[in-house]
Simulated assay, not measured.
Amino acid sequence: MTLYTTRKAPDGSTVEEPERVIETRLTGFGVHAGVLASSLALPLLSVVPLPVVSGVFLHLGRRVVAGNLFVERCKKLWLEKGTLDPRVDGAEREMVALGRWAVFRFTAAACLLGLLALRCNPSTALVFPSVIGVLMLVRVKLVPRMFSRRELRLLDTAIGDSL
């Protein structure tokens, strides 16, 4: 269930924004019931062409990436500074307040390059899921040494904001 709040936009219109998402046990049960139902329908699913299945997964992946702050930051890194409007969203506000270099360092220093290198090497790809758990330690111990408190306040999503 998603709870929404309304606010006034700079142009005077009202905008509904999600305040928080409440995950229920019913959602998890529904997902697992759907997986079970699809496994029971395997003979019927074998008739569906593979490009159709690939298209469905491509569509789902695109929908998931649409609101991802990491992806938004990567897109904004390529925009000219004059086109950025700090009133629009957080990624543009960060870019104007801190500059491209700080945003790039935070985005790259979020272990993206290390994870990519680990993932691309076949001999180390097996430990990739374990490295995801290590990212918490990197965030707590390493990232505060690389950025000031002001930069982290602007760049990092507070844990309470994501609930």
Rank of each mutant, 00 (worst) to 15 (best):
T6D: 01
L60C: 06
V64K: 03
L142K: 01
L137S: 10
V35T: 03
E151S: 13
G133I: 06
L36E: 06
A117I: 14
L58R: 06
L118A: 13
R87W: 02
K141N: 10
P144T: 02
V35G: 00
E72I: 09
G90F: 05
V15T: 07
E94A: 15
L112R: 11
C111F: 11
I22K: 05
V138P: 08
D161G: 04
R105P: 02
L77W: 05
F57I: 10
T157I: 14
V103G: 01
L45Q: 06
L58C: 02
K75C: 05
S130M: 13
K75Y: 01
T5R: 14
G133K: 04
L58F: 08
L44A: 14
R119I: 03
D161V: 03
W101Y: 11
F29C: 02
G28A: 06
V21F: 01
H59Y: 11
T5G: 07
D156S: 10
L118C: 15
L58N: 04
F70K: 09
V65A: 11
L42D: 00
K141M: 13
K81H: 10
A41I: 03
D85T: 07
R105F: 04
M1Y: 06
T83D: 15
L79T: 09
K75R: 15
L116V: 14
P144F: 02
M95G: 06
R62N: 08
A158T: 02
R25F: 08
G114T: 12
L118W: 02
